[in-house]
Amino acid sequence: MKAAEIHNIHKSYDEVKALGGISMQVEKGEIFGLIGPDGAGKTSLIRILTTLLYPDQGQASIFGMDTIRDFKGIRKIAGYMPGRFSLYQDLSVEENLNFYASIFGTTVSENYHLIKDIYQQIEPFKKRLAGRLSGGMKQKLALSCALIHKPDILFLDEPTTGVDAVSRKEFWEILKNLEEVGITIIVSTPYMDEAELCDRVALMQEGQLLDVDTPANIIGKYDHELYAVESRELHQLIKDLRSFDKTVSAFPFGDTVHLATQEKLRRKELQKFLEEKGHEGIAVQSIEPGIEDCFMNLMRKQNDE
């Protein structure tokens, strides 16, 4: 049985189309990433899967339970962490956790082993009101509350948005540990670099699926040659590379520009072209694409269609 089966889901809010016919499957026990910017439809999809929203069209099921008919069954086995911090700010850390445990008919001590690693970090502040916690601690508490009833499947809606790089890294380490316990995780994120931490990902853009696959396969499907080009003047470099006749796209990536071309380049040719434009410190290197390169490439193709 699949952890989630999604078939041709459509969803619109008034005029705005949030999901335009999405189909995919999530395997049991994997970390599945929904990757895309705001407006891609990630939150709508998660809300449909957690039985919070009706799809306009199409079906979805979680462990074989239909999200419309068997919503009660799903609500028993799903853990959910909404995008916005949504715990009771006027209750303490401990009170929040106890409350969520008891509405699922369990106790904190029963499943403490599951949340131990996370909860230990906030336990010194267990008497503090949740509203007075720092951002990172709130996030850990929210995850603890979503986990306390030992869900079979965990839905995380943008858990790392607005969170600094260090806390993000810690958060993903926690998710990896949960995967080992056998919990299926569906997580959404706008950060493309997090895709590589998932077993499989769905790349989403404006309610459409760009691709669903393992990160490695998505990278393998990349159909251009890619170069990392460096020079002293990054902004000028982008402009000049775009005027280069073999360029498909040129975008800044960190301190280099990723240049995609249809065919293999002779490095000297590019070197010469840039020298003529007056660049200094030129370096050209053939590189493997990342998920972000692939995403941008797929976006461009979708726009061309």
Binding site: R75, P82, R84
Partner: peptide, 12 residues
């Protein structure tokens, strides 16, 4: 506050 989401996605 969004806490209704958490309540709904529970067996309550």
């Amino acid at each position: 506050l969004g806490t209704m989401e958490n309540l709904l996605v529970s067996p309550l």
